[in-house]
Design a protein around this nucleic acid. Structure first.
Length: 275
DNA sequence: AACGCGCCCTGTCCGC
DNA sequence: TGCGGACAGGGCGCGT
């Protein structure tokens, strides 16, 4: 569910709320959320301190004050329906708990996930560094330039919509923001990535950044499941121009928005504005 | 190597 | 009201 703006919103919440917090105990309720041995996961985090919270691609990365060797990074990928909720002392626990982190101050950090497509991984600093190195450019970083985007697309014959969602080249863009960025850029989602013209990649570079920045400002897009760390919905859904709007008029020209399927995912676009 | 597809899982919504 | 099918923000592993 969550793309870069949603993960960034949660990370900023967590940074404010739990940086420096001490974990007392951890309970893995659903073992299939953890790749490693759940007992090792629980023991390694018990008594550890959350030193820093950052985002890389669509991952929440917590730097852990190491109690156990090889357990310096807690990396959380939310999949489609994962949530990381900070629960107050008296707060009732929601349904579908996945992993419960009891903090020393009485609050709980709860990983909740209805569909369980998410993953929590406890890794060494080196293991995380090599995982991170395999991920593409951060679209809001200085390295993401129009030239970089143009260069990266050159040899690919994949449709640009599908290309944008591949986390090995540029990260953080998922199904919603790929459609939205392409609409703003006036580029057809079906066009082969390698055939985009210079002016198209330049425009797309700009619209990717703009749509992600704006969505962060509105604390993400909630269609159904997404919630921030306080359990609140994001406000960007009302700003979507094409996503989930099949049959409705294009905000620019009035043509009916179309839905097509690419790589088994829905794509929304305006057949008039996007050629 | 790059690409396309199926699959992981549960819930909701829509048409009959 | 019940039921089957389609669909949902992601990512991995497989076969070609």
């Amino acid at each position: 569910m969550p793309e870069l703006p949603e993960v960034e919103t949660i990370v900023r919440d967590l940074r404010r709320l739990v940086t420096g917090a001490q974990v007392r105990t951890v309970v893995v309720v659903r073992g299939d959320l953890i790749d490693s041995d759940p007992a090792w996961f629980e023991q390694s985090l018990a008594g550890a301190r959350i030193e820093q919270v950052t985002r890389r691609a669509k991952n929440i990365v917590m730097k852990i004050g190491a109690v156990a060797p090889g357990a310096e990074r807690l990396v959380i990928n939310l999949g489609m329906t994962g949530r990381v909720l900070v629960l107050g002392v008296d707060a009732a626990e929601p349904s579908h708990p996945g992993v419960r982190f009891q903090l020393e101050d009485g609050r709980r950090l709860l990983y909740q996930d209805v569909r369980r497509f998410g993953r929590l991984q406890l890794l060494s600093g080196e293991a995380w560094a090599s995982r991170s190195a395999a991920l593409g450019l951060e679209p809001l970083s200085d390295e993401f330039t129009p030239e970089a985007l143009h260069g990266l697309t050159r040899r690919s014959r994949v449709a640009i919509k599908t290309w944008l969602m591949d986390q090995r080249r540029v990260v953080g863009v998922g199904n919603i923001y790929a459609s939205e960025a392409l609409f703003r850029a006036g580029v057809s989602p079906r066009k082969a990535a390698g055939r985009l013209l210079r002016r198209e990649t330049t425009r797309l570079h700009e619209t990717i950044r703009a749509v992600l920045d704006e969505a962060i400002e509105f604390r993400g897009t909630t269609l159904l499941d997404y919630r921030d760390a306080a359990g609140e919905r994001g406000g960007f859904a009302l700003r979507l121009e094409v996503y989930d709007r099949a049959g409705k008029p294009c905000p620019a020209c009035g043509t009916a928005i179309r839905r097509i399927v690419q790589g088994a995912r829905s794509t929304f676009f305006c057949p008039t504005c996007q050629r």
